[in-house]
Each structure stands twice: as structure tokens, then as C-alpha cells.
Write a protein that binds this DNA or RNA. Structure first.
Lengths: 246, 246
DNA sequence: CGACGGAAATGCGTATACAATAGTCGTCGT
DNA sequence: ACGACGACTATTGTATACGCATTTCCGTCG
């Protein structure tokens, strides 16, 4: 076990070109954090998947201490669930949580649209249009992972344009969780944010029409939420009596 | 000096078995977290105060590892700021952040009022009325720390009544940060949420009048924000040129 | 008198060790 | 043969100690 670990560490060091010591401290942690959160958002790590500290520390070639810090952060963002003495696993959102998240997005993202319309610039519109285009291409090309990430990034970038960093952070967190929700309750092949919704939304924003953008965002989110198939999947105390009596 | 006191205190705790809270488990960390965050929210730790890991670990009798975890969490909630190789300090919110926080509170707390009015029950109203009463009494009695904490708790509890846990979490975070903002920009003797605002708001909610509650909350928050004296206090790179040319 | 350089101090991150616990598997008794 | 109890293992949680980087302060030199 230790030998394996040493080998992995050496390989990691060779990769970064730092022999003996990896002094990249915070930067390395940041990249690991993004690697894990991306994997979760892109559904390469599915809800319920266990994230063992030893395994992660071996894979990334850092100490378990560092991994723990990263897992704590992910837990605070509710992307992973930490159960005491049982370790970390990718969060499996409940139906209630899904409703909360989409209600919150309705409130915040829609509420942000007027200000975003006011602050929209040609450069920002250009960047967003590019993201929307790439997302649609990824979706067409079957790269669902890429499409999911780009969709979340689009919503996040949009919120950031409002100038309110705090609310933009909230939106980004909500989008990450939405990815998880789609992974659990989404119908395969009918991913959220398809069609030309993002492009259409952009048009309203470029026209400075906050009202219509707001209404459109509301419909957009409602459409995504409606596409979910919420089946309650009782986690606790399944009603065996009801199940086996029928 | 500090070491000796901390050592004796820790020894005493171990000998007495730590009455009230058992120090063994994660609950100890939880209580330390609350101790620090309360101290920040109640302005017993003022913005800019440095939080050295060694000192904290001695005071609370836990290792630096645990303190680090707690500081990370507080940093993610933006109550403390971690500057690389400079340590942790209580966050000193900027004027921009203050505006963002209050704009966010306007959007979320006001947007929540209709649902809260719909779900208000006599028991909840009773509890909230008690909190408001205790807050007013604390304010009258000169216990500003208690009043500040109760005010934040009132807003948080209110949001939680909406049934949306995600948005309630956001509101609680925003209220914590608001406490910090009041510490920096608030006028002494004119603390937020005084008068009978909370009681009046409760009345509207008990009547199920979400519209008026929403409007009242909006005025309430605007009043708090307006009471702030925002002076820019350039932190870094003071504009010497501008200062000395005039 | 100012500037440069070294030594001490502080902080951060990692590794290692140890403790505690939940899950698993085997054995024993009825 | 089946169930229950107990030991073992795997994994997490926490503390301690060390190494490295950076900052700060002070002494010496120009």
C-alpha cells in the first residue's frame, strides 16, 4: 500500500516537474477541488458514489489532510455528503431539495435579469453567445459532460454580470446542485437547457429588455424543472407492508 | 503566560470531564465554531482582528488541525479572511460587499415574505414574538451583543419558515455578514432593527398579508442600509497623489 | 545615514501516529 | 441448520511533529 502510494507520488512529481517536493500548495488544492467538483457536475461521479480519502489522496498524490479539507469544502457546498465515521459520498439530492433549489433559482436568477440587461455589453454578449454555441455543439456531438458544465457556466456567468458577487456565488452553487439533481431525476437524452433557450435569452438581454428576459428565464427554469421525473424513492423505512401486500 | 493558563485550563477540563459539552467528538468542534462565529457576530471580535491558530488552539484546548478546519469553514462563509502566509483575521467588509449583501437581502428576504405569510402558524408567531421582545429588551438594557445576535436569529428564523432550506441558509449567511457590516459602517448607538419593526412585521405576517409584509421588509432593510455611514476607507494603495495634490 | 543581507519568527501544508467506530466475517451454541 | 455473539479489519477523526516559504527585524557595510 505504501509502495503504491509512493509510486503514485513520484509520478505526480514527475508530471509537475517538481522532484522530491511539491511546493505548489494552495494551487494544487484548488486544481484538485475543481477536478472533483467538475467530475461531479459532469456526472462522471454519480450521486451516491463513495469518495474514500485514501483513494483520493493516492490518485492526486497529496496527503489525506489536504483531501479532507477539499471534501469539507465540497460538503459545505452540498456537492458531497459527509456522514460521520462513514466517509464522503456524492450527494443524492432529495425531491424536496430539488424543489428548493429550483425555487431559489427562480427567485434569484429571474430577479437578476433586469440588472443584467442593464449592464450587458457587446463583449459580454459575445462571450456568452460563444458559450451557448459551444454548449449546443457539445450536446449535438453527444458530449453530455461538456454540455452540462457549459450550461452551468452560462448561468453562472450571466449572474456574475449583474455585478453582485454574492448573488452570483449563490447562483453558481445552485447551478452545481442542479447538475446533481439532473443526474438523479433527469431523463436521459432530454437534458436541461437544450434547444435555443440560451441564445434567445441572450437576445432579450442584448436588447436591454429586462422584463422579457426575466419572463423568459422563468419559463426556461420551469421547463427544466418540469422535465424532471420526480419519483420519491423513499430512502428511509421503505413501506415493505405496502410493497409486498400488492 | 498564555501557555500556562491554557494548560491549566485544559487540565482542569480533562479532570472534570468537561461538564455540559463533551470534548471528545465533533461536537466540540461545532461548539468552538459557534463560539468564534458568535464572537464575530456579536462584535466581541472586531473586523480586522487577527486570529492566530496557535492562540486559538491554546484557548480552546484543541489542536491546530481542528482550528484550521474551523477557520476554513468561517472563511467560506466570509466571516474571516484567510490571506496566504498572513494568517486569518475577521473580515472587514468593503463598501461594495455591503451593497451586495443588502441588495441580496432585499431580493431574497422580501421575495420570501409571501410564502412565509402563507405558512405562518400561531406557534411560530409566538416564538418570533418572543425573540423580538427579547431583542428589544436587550437593546434597552444596553446588551448590544445579545441584541445583534437576536436580530440576526430573527431574520434567519423567519426565512426558515418559508420551508425553503436552501434560501434560509443563504439568508442566515447574509445576516451574519450584515452583522460584520454593521460593525464597520454602523453608527454606534443606532443599531439596525431597532424600534418595533420586527413586531410590526410579525403583525402583517400573522394576518397573512404577504404583500404588506414584503413591502415592510423592504423598507426595513432599506432603513438599516440607509443608517450606515459608508466611507470608503481605501485599504490598499491609498491614492497619495490625489490626497496630497489637493 | 541608508541599503543590503542574514537570522529569528510566523504561518502553512504534509506526513505520521494513534484512537475510535462501523462493517464484516467467523465461530459457537442451541 | 440457524441465529447470535465476538473478533477482525477497514476507514475515518484527531493530534503531534516536521519541513518549507515568507516576512520582519536587526546588524553590518558602503
Amino acid at each position: 500500500m505504501n509502495q503504491r502510494r509512493a509510486a503514485t507520488e513520484r509520478k505526480a512529481n514527475e508530471k509537475t516537474g517538481r522532484p522530491g517536493k511539491n511546493g505548489d500548495g494552495p494551487e494544487r488544492h484548488e486544481s484538485i477541488y475543481h477536478a472533483i467538483s467538475d467530475a461531479i457536475i459532469e456526472h462522471r461521479l454519480k450521486p451516491g458514489a463513495r469518495l474514500r480519502e485514501d483513494a483520493l489522496s493516492e490518485v492526486f498524490g497529496v496527503s489525506r489532510t489536504g483531501i479532507r479539507k477539499i471534501l469539507q469544502r465540497l460538503a459545505l457546498e452540498q456537492l458531497v455528503t459527509l456522514t460521520p465515521r462513514r466517509g464522503a459520498s456524492v450527494t443524492r439530492p432529495t425531491a424536496d431539495e430539488a424543489k428548493d433549489v429550483f425555487d431559489a433559482r427562480q427567485m434569484i436568477e429571474c430577479g437578476l435579469m433586469p440588472e443584467v440587461a442593464r449592464r450587458m455589453t457587446p463583449e459580454a454578449a459575445e462571450e456568452l453567445r460563444d458559450m451557448a454555441r459551444r454548449e449546443r455543439e457539445a450536446l449535438k456531438g453527444g458530449e453530455q459532460s461538456t454540455a452540462i458544465k457549459l450550461s452551468a457556466a452560462f448561468h453562472g456567468r450571466l449572474a456574475r454580470l449583474s455585478g453582485n458577487a454574492t448573488l452570483a456565488d449563490f447562483v453558481e452553487r445552485l447551478c452545481s446542485r442542479s447538475s446533481l439533481i439532473l443526474a438523479v431525476y433527469g431523463n436521459a437524452g432530454h437534458l436541461g437547457c437544450e434547444s435555443h433557450d440560451h441564445e434567445d435569452l441572450l437576445s432579450f438581454l442584448e436588447q436591454g429588455n429586462g422584463e422579457r428576459a426575466q419572463a423568459f428565464m422563468s419559463r426556461h427554469l420551469k421547463a427544466i424543472e418540469a422535465s424532471l421525473s420526480i419519483h420519491e424513492e423513499e430512502e428511509e423505512t421503505p413501506d415493505l407492508y405496502r410493497i409486498f401486500s400488492a
